[in-house]
């Protein structure tokens, strides 16, 4: 038997439950976050890469934006890029967003009528990128004041599946260092267009204000 150095009655009574479990109480929210993260793989595996979810840059009317993003190349167009992450840098400027009366003549097939309740818009862009940049899945979206995203579908209303390249392009690879395109989009006749979004299927996109 040894003599205790202090009075044994005082010390334990002063430490409450919250103090004794302080470490676990701090770890509890961390554990909850980890548990939620562990069961949320669908968000980053399926939802995040599929659709425009991440605004890379937002520029005012008439300004030039730079869409810089890495994408995973499966090698459809350029076999030497197969199964690698490729950096894609595209410079984009919105030249005009114009409301017109008729849809332009399609390159193939019959003229497409304008359905009731819709009006066609023509979006003209100036694009710049190093030649042989893969522009597949190019997405041009008009954002209406009603919150709707117009023109997400590919191929577009005239059947063009590669909206970022001139109509005579054979494949989705760019050939010139700089070029311009015009893409038709059908919009609700009552909607007012506030923004243009530009991307490649997702997740990154750049936004342009419309004057």
């Amino acid at each position: 038997m040894t003599t205790l150095p202090e009075n044994p009655v005082e010390a334990p009574a002063a430490v409450g439950w919250w103090r004794r479990n302080a470490v676990w109480l701090v770890l509890l929210p961390v554990a909850l976050v980890v548990a939620a993260g562990a069961s949320s793989f669908r968000i980053w595996a399926f939802w995040w890469p599929n659709g425009l979810h991440h605004e890379i840059q937002h520029v005012g009317a008439g300004e030039t934006a730079r869409h810089s993003e890495e994408y995973y190349d499966v090698g459809f167009q350029v076999p030497e890029r197969a199964n690698t992450w490729v950096q894609r840098d595209v410079e984009v400027e919105v030249l005009s967003v114009t409301r017109v009366d008729e849809l332009p003549e399609p390159d193939y097939g019959d003229p497409v009528p304008v359905p009731d309740g819709a009006v066609p818009y023509l979006v003209s862009l100036r694009l710049a990128a190093v030649p042989r940049t893969d522009l597949a899945l190019c997405t041009i979206v008009l954002l209406g004041d009603d919150g709707a995203r117009y023109g997400e579908k590919s191929p577009d209303v005239l059947g063009s599946s590669n909206r970022c390249l001139p109509p005579d392009a054979d494949d989705p690879l760019s050939t010139e260092p700089e070029w311009s395109i015009t893409s038709p989009i059908l919009v609700d006749e009552d909607a007012v267009i506030t923004e243009v979004r530009f991307g490649f299927g997702g997740p990154g996109y750049v936004t342009f204000d419309v004057p």
Binding site: P115, D116, G117, A118, G144, D146, A148, R149, Y150, G151, E152, K153, I185, L186, V187, D188, A191
Partner: peptide, 8 residues
């Protein structure tokens, strides 16, 4: 079927 805003 699929559809987008702007027309039925």
């Amino acid at each position: 079927t699929g559809s987008q805003p702007g027309y039925a």
